[in-house]
Design a protein around this nucleic acid. Sequence first.
RNA 1: GGCGCUUUCGUCUAGUGGCCAAGGACACAGCGUUCUCAACGCUGGAACACGGGUUCGAUUCCCGUAAGCGCUACCA
Length: 487
Amino acid sequence: MKTSAKKQSKKENICIRTRIAPSPTGPLHIGTARAALFNYLFAKHNKGDFVLRIEDTDIERSDKRFEKNITDGLEWLGIKWTEGPYRQSERLEIYKKYIQKLLEEGKAFWCPHTKEELTEEKQRQMANKEAPRHVCEYKTKKLKSTASKAGLPAGRQGIIRLDTPQKIVEFEDLIRGKIKFDTFLLGDIAIAKDEETPLYNLAVVIDDYLMQISHVIRGEDHISNTPKQILLQEIFGFSQPQYAHLPLVLGPDRSKLSKRHNVVSVDEYRKAGYLPEAIINFIALLGWNPGTEQEIFSLDELVKKFDLKRVQKGGAIFNIERLNWLNGIYIRRKSAKEIMEIILREGFLDISENKFKNDYIEKVVALEQTRMKKLSEIGERTHYFFSEPKFPKSMLFWEEKESPDTKTYLDKINSLVQNIKPKDFVKEKIKDIIWPYAEKMGRGNVLWPFRVALTGQCKSPDPFEIAEILGKETTLKRLADAIELLK
RNA sequence: GGCGCUUUCGUCUAGUGGCCAAGGACACAGCGUUCUCAACGCUGGAACACGGGUUCGAUUCCCGUAAGCGCUACCA
């Protein structure tokens, strides 16, 4: 926490410092992950710092488990913060000083209105086609401290508001250009529940300043908070960070991606068998592009090429098909051993540990690498390697044409396989021996039942590769079982 | 309702006045390779929201309109 204590003499340097400030009220959201990535990329690209700050001032909704989920998720993705995590809940003393200062200077005041009164006021204003805003008559009374809070009407809790100056606030957004707001429309901004409990806009301003954040890169949904924060900065005499508001990540209906759009948290993607590299690559391209036709990027490449100028203004739909494609690419790019290790570590394959050796599993994985879109598919795709396939007799017939010849073909394959020496039991050799027969009798006639006998599947890799992995003994056993089924 | 932001193929996007009868990728369709599936290769359909300007010339600049989205909490 030493950084926050740094004096403002340091403020002048052009050190790039960004931050991600998630609120631990839910698991790491894909949108938060993208904001984190962009902050990370921008900081890294400029040799700056990337701060993680947990915004947990709302004790009701914050949960340590979510904080853990968020930090775990960022680590898994490889988005490493260089500082923090700071927790706002541990910085209450700091905010308190600022709140008291505002109160003492008469720049903030206790507003005693109840939520009901406020709601009623808002409805009235909306009905009159006015901007909903609360300008409190109590600000002239300047109830400065907790002591004077006693002067509030009996039984009223109250909240601390800023005596909000009326002016036009204008700022230059790095992505969108000039944005203007009339603070008249804001009313008196709520800044704290009490002297110990700052609200979002206040805590953000104080922390961004103390942590010397140079660039605030966040979702477009924060644009309307920006004038409030700038006002606060001006009142405190803080320097203003640069702002860059990212386009939103959208659901298929073009509204902000949220729980009702099914899967939105990073850990759910992890559990579904997505690789962190694929997710990074995918979310980086959601609202940013390199200006070239390159589509595949490692994190390091992104750091090199990232530029805020190439960030899109319009929102981007989270298109799972594209993620699937990328995931497939990354699955194929890794070695079978790596994929196997991930599959085992993440528990995608539900098999008894010692029954199968790792190199057996690795071969199975290698076979499915070009076929899988998600690692979670491995079980359903390869179960026949770990247990006896069960299938109806009818499946053995090529093109569903029942024929007594099928049994003849399997008998022949069986005898051909039997004659292969154990040391020659590799796919090339097996193919050499069976292929001529298949050519002669019609490939489908021979190969289809062979494959079904081994896998019990209509779709699978070719039978030679499968036979090799299964081994001669198991191959013969399955052939025999299939022949038996045809009797 | 108020304020703000946005608008190129279904989706992600290239494009900064002529190089665009708009390029790439995903998805889709077809073909090739093939016992099936996948991978791979080739081919194809598919978009500048609308209306005015400015200009010799607008996807690109300006103004409107429309639509969508965001914010509108004693949440962040």
